[in-house]
Amino acid sequence: MKKLFVISALIIIVLSFKTIDDLFVVPKNFPKPVYDFSNNPLSADKIALGKALFYDPILSKDNTISCSSCHLSYTAFTHTDHNVSHGIDNRIGVRNAPALMNLAWNKHFMWDGAVHQLDMQALAPISNHDEMDETIENVVSKLQQSNKYKQLFYKAFNDSNATGEHTLKSIAQFMVTLISANSKYDKVIRKETGYSFTENELKGYNLFKQNCASCHTEPLFTNNEFENNGLTTDKFLNDIGRAKISQNPNDSFKFKVPSLRNVELSYPYMHDGRFPNLQMVLFHYTEDIHQNPTLSKQLKKKIVLGEADKNNLIAFLKTLTDEEFLQNPKFQPERY
């Protein structure tokens, strides 16, 4: 009897892993994901619906802006060369569109952590006045009138009538599939044959571990925390960051630590996109830290890097570029 119980428990475990396995493989060098798949079990049809929605401007008030307007697959789903996000009617937002990858491991979303669960993230850009300026009620009513979406929702949920829940869950499903774990760095760490760091990259990696890794922690290259990284305050935006959400003055000017994966392509940098290149980022961290009561403790001691060090560090950061992720045809829009 006991044996039977153990066997059936094992079968259940194997089966439950298998459904995630097919569509969501946890990379060998990654921890367990944070996202709770039991509340939103993945299916190919739901992911396909989510992708269709991700690429569809129907999510915006005047049907002109889609998620992909600011999150382009070829640049790690960020808006390269744009410092803050753009919206309908040529409106300009206040923060830099972040790269989208490895979201199943994120504990918080948005620069200030305003969103605590991936399913609900899409509501933020949909309703933001300077982005899509639309309501989820109206998005759902537009989807309910579309024959294309009636079919897609039926395939995904056995119900052709779109709901807020199903819309958000399918967008989240597409987003969790955006896994970047095949950069040169990953292949070296996983000891895959034929991959090793160059001398410069290795020096850069050691400098990275000494100076950057306490916040940009491997393997996700973020500690999932909020930090004040010593930027001067932009007088026009006057963005207090995390404190806006937590209402705790100790969180003033803190922003979510972004992952550095694919950082080569996600320029410009910082929450407001103020630095156009990595050289300026390193100048900031070594020479230009603005003292402030909420400054991250890791930055209170000056970081010293010579020119050669900086070049080596940048060489290492470029090993985080994941061409397979950037060119993955699964992430490209379907033609319906």
Binding site: N40, H116, M120, L123, A124, S127, N128, I136, H166
Partner: peptide, 24 residues
């Protein structure tokens, strides 16, 4: 329940009872 993500029925976010700018 707030931590569970997207939910349906009375809890569907189309009911006008969900904050988008600060989840909950």
């Amino acid at each position: 329940t707030n931590a569970k993500g997207a939910l349906g029925g009375a809890l569907d976010p189309t009911k006008g009872m969900y904050w988008a700018w600060h989840s909950g």
